[in-house]
Write a protein that binds this DNA or RNA. Structure first.
Length: 648
DNA sequence: TCCCGAATAT
DNA sequence: TATATTCGGG
């Protein structure tokens, strides 16, 4: 029944010509996870075959999967804000261990956040809700990765000797160079659907089009920020980029386009041009790198021309994110550009002269400070970053639990959970507790009152304290995590709601016209089928069971909704795969980020697996709910059926 | 001769 | 549209 609409035969030749892509999606928010996964499947472009799409809700699970199956995945798509480990940290870990491109997504629209992600090496930053344009970038990252081009991952400024190849696509319409000079005569070569590129008139290497991937463009931006916008000429950029195969002409062409882009943006900053296609621009490659580039450029110019800067300030030509939108720098100076930033991108620019003078270089947030302690204690993290504190003390809150043995990672992501607060340092191992000084490398850590404050101490370490500074995003994270909305969705898909109900929910709660326009997609039908087939029951021995009768494998979330107050009603635990899974009723389900049971990925696609999730020894009163999301083996038929709509 | 960059072609 | 190519001029 998955094919009620007429499915014209796709214009695909054979499956073997498709690029098999395997993606790992990480998001602690189940709703978001489901949506992203769904969109990836729904909007898979021609030529790409999603061989496997694995979703996990914990970064640790993600790493586990990646380690278990090296070379298995081509791309990681991760949420930014997650407990234990945030998207940036995950990205860096993934880059380090697996050299895979990582796309970070978040509903956070702060420019500083976008910048942080990109500077830390993310291939792409994707705003939630995800749209089709973003997906294009995802696919490009995936394809680039699949083709084994390491340049899909771009880390910082190229060092000497480090070279990155460029990605090419074969230009099907490319004409041999020798022919091109005789322009008048090329007309006869012109064909409408010039499909055959095997004219082979030239034996030389085919002229390939340079594809300015994100990584390549990032390198381009790095070059410009290094050289300065005014001194950026094709040759110098080319040299700095140090990309084999890239020509000066390539750079010149790109530079031309880039300048046009800057100009257009600048014009928009001054005039009031209707935002017709602004959205598109914002999500463009250029816009993505803009924040980073501008910040570097500003930093550079600030150092070089501080007096000018200061006087400019006094003259009132301030660097002002005017209502968070416009950054105007002396428009008359060739060194400066007036740029308009979208309101969801905000540069952490200093506002007063003093800050400008002392502003350190914003480094990437790659350090994960650690600290150790023996006893319970409370310490405060003082953020002295001029980017954040606005002249006042700025505390960020986090909670950590020490193991009593000393080392405890302090994840940058932990710092995102609150604003003015303290770090609660708890020691679990009281038996071995010996009053002693904790030590570690918390950045900007300041001791404050606690039960046993004397036993804690922290020191500033690291060459650049800013490099491990507090993330400037200590705000609420509504919409992320297990909010009521998530439960609504959860309940919706758990109680056998119809597909229309689900889609209606999506429509009401998200901007998902795209999804709605594909309500009949086979994937969604399949998913809905799994929802309906979910059975929930509780045995008389208080052993709630959840069983699925799906013929394919799936992912399930087991929701713990106790009648007693033993655990968080909003908590749930994730299990994946077919087959049975047991968990203890007194297992701590409160933490939604417990290591999940994950079936061996090799068997995930086994279509014969029927799933049975059961809870043994469950605490009385606990009800178990579960829902399944189909993770279907995308056979050719199913895959091809998606190609009805020409999406890309 | 090099090479930049606007204009133009694909 | 994105990238390549051309071409006048510094």
């Amino acid at each position: 029944m998955g094919r009620e609409r007429s499915v014209p035969t796709p214009s695909l030749k054979t499956t073997s010509s498709l690029l098999k892509i395997q993606i790992l999606v990480v998001d602690d928010d189940s709703t978001s996870l489901a949506i992203v996964a769904s969109m990836l499947k729904t909007y898979c472009p021609r030529g790409i075959y999603i061989y496997r799409l694995l979703t996990v809700r914990s970064p640790l699970d993600a790493l586990l999967q990646l380690r278990l199956h090296q070379g298995f995945f081509d791309l990681v798509v991760t949420d930014l804000y997650m407990p234990v480990m945030n998207g940036i940290e995950l990205q860096q870990q993934v880059n380090e261990e697996f050299n895979l491109p990582v796309v970070i997504m978040s509903s956070d629209d702060k420019k500083s956040v976008v910048m942080d992600c990109l500077e830390s090496g993310a291939s792409f930053y994707m705003m939630k809700p995800v749209n089709q344009n973003d997906l294009k970038n995802i696919w490009q990252c995936a394809v680039t990765s699949k083709q084994g081009k390491p340049s899909a991952i771009m880390e910082g400024i190229p060092s000497s000797g480090e070279k990155l190849p460029i990605e090419y696509i074969n230009s099907s319409a490319s004409v041999p160079q020798e022919r091109r000079d005789v322009k008048g005569s090329t007309k006869k070569l012109k064909r409408k659907g010039n499909r055959e590129d095997e004219d082979g008139t030239t034996t030389g290497p085919k002229k390939a089009k340079v594809v300015w991937t994100n990584s390549l463009h990032n390198r381009f931006l790095h070059a410009i920020s290094h050289l300065g916008l005014d001194k950026s000429v094709p040759k110098k950029i080319l040299e700095f980029m140090s990309v084999p195969g890239l020509t000066r002409e390539n750079v010149a062409s790109h530079l031309q386009k880039y300048r046009i882009f800057l100009k257009r943006v600048a014009e928009k900053g001054n005039s009031t041009i209707p935002k017709d296609s602004s959205e598109k621009d914002l999500r463009s490659t250029f816009a993505n790198g803009l924040a980073s580039m501008m910040l570097r450029s500003l930093e550079q110019q600030k150092q070089q021309r501080l007096p000018e800067f200061v006087s400019m300030q006094k003259m009132g030509a301030q660097i002002q994110p005017g209502r968070g939108e416009t950054v105007s720098l002396s428009p008359d100076s060739p060194n400066f550009t007036s740029l308009n930033f979208p309101n969801h991108h905000q540069l952490p620019l200093p506002l007063d002269q003093q800050q400008i003078q002392t502003l350190p270089s914003p480094d990437k947030i790659c350090n994960i400070p650690t600290a150790s302690g023996i006893e319970d204690g409370v310490v405060a993290v003082n953020n002295s970053s001029p980017y954040l504190n606005n002249g006042q003390d700025n505390y960020v809150k986090t909670e950590m639990i020490g193991d009593g043995l000393g080392q405890k990672n302090f994840n940058a992501g932990d710092m995102l959970s609150g604003i003015n607060g303290f770090i609660n340092w708890n020691c679990n191992d009281f038996s071995s507790s010996v009053p002693s000084m904790g030590n570690g490398s918390f950045s900007n850590l300041v001791q404050t009152g606690s039960a046993i404050p004397e036993q804690f101490s922290a020191s500033l370490t690291g060459a650049n304290p800013e490099s491990s500074s507090i993330l400037p995003i200590a705000e609420n994270q509504d919409g992320i995590g297990n909010g009521p909305e998530d439960m609504d969705f959860f309940n919706l898909i758990s109680d056998g709601s119809t597909l229309d109900d689900i889609l209606n929910y999506l429509q009401l709660n998200s901007d998902f016209d795209e999804i709605l326009s594909h309500t009949k997609s086979p994937y969604q039908q399949q998913a809905a089928q799994v929802f309906r087939n979910s059975n929930f029951s509780a045995s008389n021995s208080n052993q709630p069971k959840v069983s699925f009768s799906a013929s394919n494998s799936y992912q399930a979330q087991v929701n713990n909704t106790p009648s007693s107050g033993l655990s968080d009603p909003n908590s749930y635990q994730q299990v994946q795969g077919g087959g049975g899974m047991n968990f203890n009723g007194n297992e701590n389900l409160v933490d939604a980020y417990q290591p999940s049971f994950i079936q061996d990925p090799e068997t995930i696609l086994d279509p014969n697996l029927d799933g049975m999730y059961s809870a043994d020894n469950a605490t009385e009163g606990i009800q178990i709910q579960a829902c399944g999301l189909a993770i279907q083996d995308w056979n050719d038929e199913f895959f091809n059926s998606l190609f009805d709509d020409d999406i890309f």
